[in-house]
Structure formats: structure tokens, C-alpha cells
Simulated scan of single mutants.
Amino acid sequence: MEIIRSKAFTASRAWGAKDIANMDGITTRLHWTDQPYKWHINDGEEVFVVLDGIVEMLYKQDGQERSVTLHSGDIFYASVGTEHVAHPNGEARILVIEKEGSV
């Protein structure tokens, strides 16, 4: 049993994470960042929940680059093969649920 105060979580580097759970190969991790990630495609599906802050999520759909602004409480679901990159606006805390070892 553990209680995690996500708004108090920080890391020593951008996209640093706290491992919360691994359920049959599906990981749940809390990330802190103040820097963009990199364009990538996960090995499977990904659920990306903004817990604190604002994140611009860029993604490619039908060959077109698109963008959506995510606020605290918003969820981005990346289906298999969705190329995407997260750009926080300042500090952000994000809960990511994905296949273990995914990029």
C-alpha cells in the first residue's frame, strides 16, 4: 500500500519517473518533466493522463501532424502505431500506463 502525492513529485531530470505498479507487463509510472520528450511510437497502446500542468500533445493522424492542449485531468489515448510527442508548458506531472519496456 502506498499513497502518492503527485503534485509534490519531482525528478532530477526531465521525464524522470516513479514506478507505481507493474500489472502483468503493463506499467503505471508517474513522470515529472519540464522539457519535451521525443517523437516516438510505443510498442503497444498508451494512456497518458495529465495530473498537473499543461501539455501540448503533437501526434500524427492520416499523415497529418496535429496538436491538442491537455490540461490537468485530461487523458490522451495513443492507439498502436500512433506517433506522438509531448511538450509541457512549464512543469508537468503525468501518469503513463503502457506496456513494460515501451519507449
Rank of each mutant, 00 (worst) to 15 (best):
G16E: 04
S102W: 05
G16I: 03
W39M: 12
H71F: 14
H84C: 13
S6R: 11
A8S: 04
A14K: 00
V50L: 03
G16P: 04
N42C: 03
V49D: 10
L70R: 12
V49Q: 14
D74E: 07
V50M: 00
A17Q: 02
H31K: 04
L30M: 08
A92L: 03
E46N: 03
T69D: 07
E46R: 02
E46M: 04
V85H: 06
G81M: 07
E56D: 14
E46I: 01
I97K: 10
I20H: 06
I75V: 15
T69L: 14
T10R: 15
K99T: 04
V47T: 07
D52K: 14
R29C: 01
V68P: 15
R66Q: 15
A21D: 01
V103S: 15
T10W: 13
E91P: 13
I75H: 11
I41C: 02
S67K: 06
F76G: 12
L70W: 08
I3Q: 05
G81I: 00
N42S: 04
T82L: 08
V96G: 14
W15V: 03
M57K: 08
W15Y: 09
D24W: 08
E91A: 15
D34A: 09
A78Y: 00
L58T: 04
Q64H: 10
E83F: 12
M57A: 09
I94Y: 04
R66S: 14
F9Y: 15
Q61G: 01
Y37W: 08
Y77K: 13
Q61N: 01
A17M: 02
I97A: 08
K38W: 06
T82M: 09
K7D: 15
Y37T: 10
M57G: 07
H84A: 14
Y77V: 13
K18I: 10
T27S: 10
H84Q: 15
F9D: 13
S12T: 09
W32E: 05
D34M: 07
I26P: 04
A8P: 03
H40I: 07
T69W: 09
G101Y: 06
H31F: 13
F9N: 13
E100T: 07
K99M: 04
G63D: 05
Y37N: 10
E46H: 00
E46D: 02
W39F: 11
D34I: 02
F76C: 12
T10L: 12
A21P: 02
A86S: 10
L30T: 15
D52R: 13
M23P: 04
F9R: 10
G90L: 06
I54V: 15
M23V: 06
A17S: 01
E45S: 03
A86E: 05
Q35D: 08
R5K: 01
V80N: 03
A86G: 09
V85W: 02
H40V: 05
T28H: 01
L30D: 08
I94C: 08
K38V: 07
V68A: 15
V50D: 00
A92N: 00
N89Q: 09
H84P: 14
E56W: 11
I26G: 00
Y77A: 10
I75T: 15
G63F: 06
E45D: 09
T10K: 15
Q64F: 10
K18L: 05
A21F: 05
L58E: 06
